[in-house]
Amino acid sequence: MTSIGTGYDLSASTYSPDGRIFQVEYAGKAVENSGTAIGLKVKDGIVLAVEKLVHSKLLVPGANRRIQTIDRHIGLAAAGLPADGRTVANRARDEAANLRETYRSPPTLKDLVDRLGHFVQMYTLYSSVRPFGTSTILGAVDKTGPSLYVIEPSGVFYGYHGAAVGKGRQLAKTELEKLKLSELTAREAVIEAARIIYLVHEDAKEKEFELEMSWISPESGGLHVAVPQELVDEAETKAKEELASGLE
């Protein structure tokens, strides 16, 4: 980033001489600093998991959720500035409701991220706004089956089998690539997701964290809800065991 400080990086409406938009890249930095979030698209559902860094022991455990529900069958996990994540999620709810009203059926995730990508992209065009400092993973089970997308601060979005954003994304992606995602059940994917989050947290061990997971599966009746506590407990126990044996 040789152009830092040359004045070409102060506005989303300015290109640098070599054709980059630095403000969008800086927004990406806000995402890189935050706790890892991952999404898994498997045979019969979707699993979302986040590494929620706990900045104070006075926080009420489990109360401050980072995974949000957009529609009955759509979930969203955001990494980056939490407030920006909420704004994107609110917009996603509005768009989902609008699609529902227009077509009188549950929206497909593809239609939703198409609109949401446009919304995020608009914030990369003008000096009067800044881009969103958040990457969002969206997962759904709709009439086309399970689907998973990531929207970047630039507004670009891609579909994934397994997705990871935030600080530990590189390691998480490597781990996701080892899995046969299309053969896993959602229940199995919960165990894997917990393991990956515990694994990537190893690099930031000095900070406390809380594992937060949601899913859309046959067991949840196609609804996006928090993973049942007993399954989370089971997954966490296994993740810790695996970690301990791996470290020996």
Partner: peptide, 17 residues
């Protein structure tokens, strides 16, 4: 610094001064 004059500017570290 260069990046703290208004709220629509991210610093190179992704902060909002």
């Amino acid at each position: 610094n260069t990046y703290d004059s208004d709220n629509t500017v991210f610093s190179p570290q992704g902060r909002l001064h």
